[in-house]
Design a protein around this nucleic acid. Structure first.
Lengths: 337, 337
DNA sequence: CTGAAAGCGCTTACAG
DNA sequence: CTGAAAGCGCTTACAG
């Protein structure tokens, strides 16, 4: 039988109120009785029941995190960041994979709310209006990751995707590239795709460089997806010297497909990734990419969320975290020939 | 204000008991009143409070999962498997990273127990006697992942590490290798290290091949760790034609270090990984490795655990799941020269 | 400084 | 078929 507060109260010859006070470290308990209670706790092996406590105080100290797929290293890092700050503040995380599936997202949200999560982090590559409204209506506090609420009602933390894609494009233009292919995510209209595309187009516009729309692919966000997109691009017979990939996994697949078709990277074709998944440093050539502070995004979002849960902060804001240009050797400098 | 069961009871003009019955789909409710209640629920937007329910029924439908580091792809896959079967059975997962740190493990366990997890999955590379005892004493159901309870008191699911290492070694011996290096995990005395080492030694014994103990390294379980171990091995001047790595990340690092030192893989040195992390297929050469069904281990462990939580099953058992020999081209067949 | 008592939001025998 | 009431294990005003 599990021992409960009343058992230790009996053991220590005090009321349950007193036991509760010492368990929760509320002062104004006589030192001597405190000792007695502590002893009784040890003797009985009492462990407080957090569920009962939560019901009473209307706070669970648990956060929900809705994430497309924990298996994607990008999201994994975010979860780790979230977990680590939860550890500091004494919170726990309930994990929920949503697979970019709108129905699963709704379900997840429902469950996390039912389980009375104090706060919920929503991570995705696009926030539909419908889900945004549900999030706003939810009784839990909400912070978004990687995607903003453009209506300004929900807080979020992410990088400026447009600026990052712009910067990367400029770098490639400077190195003499003018023929580009793009291997992006299959969720074509998704927020992240769109922002990055805008960034690329802005840079190209400034340099008066045309983008061949037939070389813009929206494929599966995986190494195999990257492989296939490169095969298609090559088969199209269209000319390109550089490809922008949605992430480093796609870039790796693209590299392999190019190699399997007799191309040398970066001499025959240059490749850019995104995110700086650790593998990007270990490929040969190393992948030029945009470093996104994935761990930090998770950590910052969580810290914001916890502050909201503890009512220290009520203002909603979108935090843009810095990204980093990592020019490595999968992109050739055509100017130095 | 959150709406609760009494609010919908008023709205529908019934007792809370009746509302509870329709919410929980307990039959013996008049069809007509059921309709009325359903309507009231919709109208009020009532969402049951799972915390209150849990307190009453003494079941939370949440599982805890203690895992060294979600960031390690091996564990990530397991968590995904666990999460997916949780989805089927209507459970949720509280995640806890333990970083191979004994103190963190104790803390995690305490928190998960306090939060009344119905069951807990412990994943690690070694189970200390002390933690084992704590696990046994815990009021939650327990299943181990990747590591067994050799005292037979706790259920677990894992591969037969000794047999897998043995098989892999035999394959390499058949290909003519006789000089081996080993790049294993830094937790030297850990269960997994030890079992795999036994498997290797058994195979070598059968073939009358000596193992050079100076070529057995216990380093950091990462690509960089693998890089360093290879550097050391090479610098030692000792002879080896093949190295067994603890996992594929280490193997990748080892490959890079060898290459950076002018070696060609597999012509100058052959490399074996372990686990079949997806990257192993995308390196060039592809990494010969032992496929471990990481997702399945998570899924099976979770299914077992849920069955225990629902008292359908009480017998404790250790399940060995099959592994797979993936002979790719990072190992050279010396016989075919 | 300490205790009696109400109440958090549910479920479920029990009685009708 | 339905409801009144007890109780899950805590916390916390309130009174003393």
């Amino acid at each position: 039988m599990k021992v409960k507060i009343v058992d230790v109260a009996k053991e220590a010859n005090v009321s349950v109120a007193t036991v509760s006070r010492v368990v929760n470290n509320i002062p104004l308990v006589n030192e001597e009785t405190k000792e007695r209670v502590l002893e009784a706790i040890k003797k009985t092996g009492y462990k407080p029941n957090a569920i009962a406590r939560s019901l009473k105080i209307q706070k669970t100290n648990t956060l929900g995190i809705m994430i497309p797929d924990i298996t994607n290293p990008f999201y994994t890092e975010m979860v780790r960041g979230a977990e680590d700050v939860c550890g500091i503040y004494n919170y726990n995380i309930i994990l929920s994979n949503t697979d970019f599936d709108h129905e699963k997202e709704q379900n997840s949200l429902g469950v996390l709310v039912e389980k009375q999560c104090d706060g919920i982090i929503y991570v995705g590559k696009h926030l539909t209006d419908e889900l945004r409204d549900d999030l706003i209506d939810a009784p839990s506090e909400i912070v978004l990751g990687c995607v903003p609420d453009e209506s300004g009602q929900l807080s979020g933390v992410l990088i400026d995707n447009e600026a990052a894609a712009y910067d990367l494009t400029i770098e490639c233009l400077k190195m003499g590239h003018t023929k580009f292919a793009i291997f992006y995510d299959e969720y074509k209209e998704g927020y992240i795709n769109q922002k990055r595309l805008q960034g690329i187009k802005k840079a190209l516009g400034e340099w008066n460089v045309e983008l061949d729309d037939d070389l813009v692919y929206f494929g599966s966000q995986s190494t195999l997806g990257g492989y296939h997109m490169m095969e298609e691009a090559l088969a199209s017979g269209r000319e390109f010297t550089n490809v922008f990939c949605f992430n480093d996994q796609i870039a790796l697949g693209a590299m392999r497909a190019a190699e399997d078709n007799g191309k040398v990277i970066p001499d025959d074709v240059s490749i850019c990734g995104f995110n700086n998944f650790w593998i990007a440093e270990w490929t040969r050539p190393q992948i030029t990419t945009v470093g996104q502070p994935m761990y930090d995004i998770g950590a910052i979002a969580t810290r914001m969320l916890i502050k909201m849960c503890e009512k220290e902060e009520r203002e909603t804001k979108t935090v843009f975290v810095p990204y980093e240009m990592l020019m490595r050797n999968s992109v050739k400098n055509l100017k130095s020939e």
